[in-house]
Simulated scan of single mutants.
Amino acid sequence: MAAAGTASATPVPVASSIPVGQGYMGAGYAQDNKDFKPVTGQLQLNTPGTVTPDAANPPGIDVSHYQGSINWSSVKAAGIQFAYIKATESTTYKDPDFSANYLNAYNAKVIRGAYHFAHPDLSSGAAQATYFAANGGAWSADNLTLPGMLDLEGGCYGLSAASMQSWILDFYNTYKAKTGRDIVIYTSPSWWNSCTGGWSGMSTRSPLFVADWTTAASPVIPGGFPYATLWQYADNGSVSGISGAVDRDYFIGTSARLLALANNTP
């Protein structure tokens, strides 16, 4: 899954209308991201039971309370190797299913990480990073914990590109000071190009988790990033152990590199 070229510029998305508590990975794209490709099927996943330490492009999912009760043992048996789990929004909201999902994924030996749905219009990046780190976003070197992720979508929140850049860097610096890890950034090409101006300031700091819902062999990469580390390629997947649709993801690399990201090793 080689990285593709950057997306063309799109109109600046309007301020988000997503209330606190209702955000999740992909929630904002229906209202303002017009460059997503239609989902017409699913990419071929690893067959359950065939995953090896050097398997290419291990599959993953991302979840929130909208998925309801999850049987993480069944998810693991289906071949899912990693998951990002919604923890917080703004400085007031914690996902009601986060604690159960985070613990049960760990017990099922699914490599998991927490994510924060950003509301840059409500408080500073530092304040939201502090809340996230204290409510599920912390990190430990246990072979099963990914660095926290910052979910950026759903409009530019009335901020200029320069102000958005400053907000993101404020979040990054605070999170790293509290956890020792670089925050992962989740976004789409249209959001990043519109709301940060295709900023390159995070390209050497943060792994990119790109949202590009497509059946193409590789994702479109936002301006300012040379490549993606993770890819959300569909929002209508099906996985054993989860009722209803779930977002489908890939780690772009090997299972060994996924473990290295979790453990903060070269």
Rank of each mutant, 00 (worst) to 15 (best):
M1W: 03
A2P: 15
G5H: 08
T10G: 12
T10C: 10
V12D: 05
P19E: 08
A27Q: 13
Q31E: 11
Q42C: 02
Q44N: 06
T47Q: 13
T47G: 00
G49D: 05
N57D: 14
N57K: 00
P59L: 01
D62P: 05
I70D: 07
V75M: 07
K76S: 10
F82D: 05
A100S: 15
N101W: 12
Y102C: 03
N104P: 02
V110H: 03
H119E: 09
H119T: 11
L122R: 15
L122A: 10
A129M: 03
G136H: 06
G136K: 09
D142M: 11
N143D: 14
L146E: 09
L150D: 05
Y157G: 01
A162P: 09
A162F: 01
S163W: 00
S163G: 13
S163C: 00
I168Q: 10
T174Y: 01
A177T: 12
K178N: 08
T179K: 11
I183S: 12
V184L: 14
Y186W: 02
T187S: 14
S188W: 06
P189M: 00
C195H: 11
P207L: 14
T215F: 03
P222H: 04
Y227R: 14
Y227Q: 12
T229Q: 13
W231C: 03
D235A: 12
L259R: 13
N263V: 01
N264S: 08
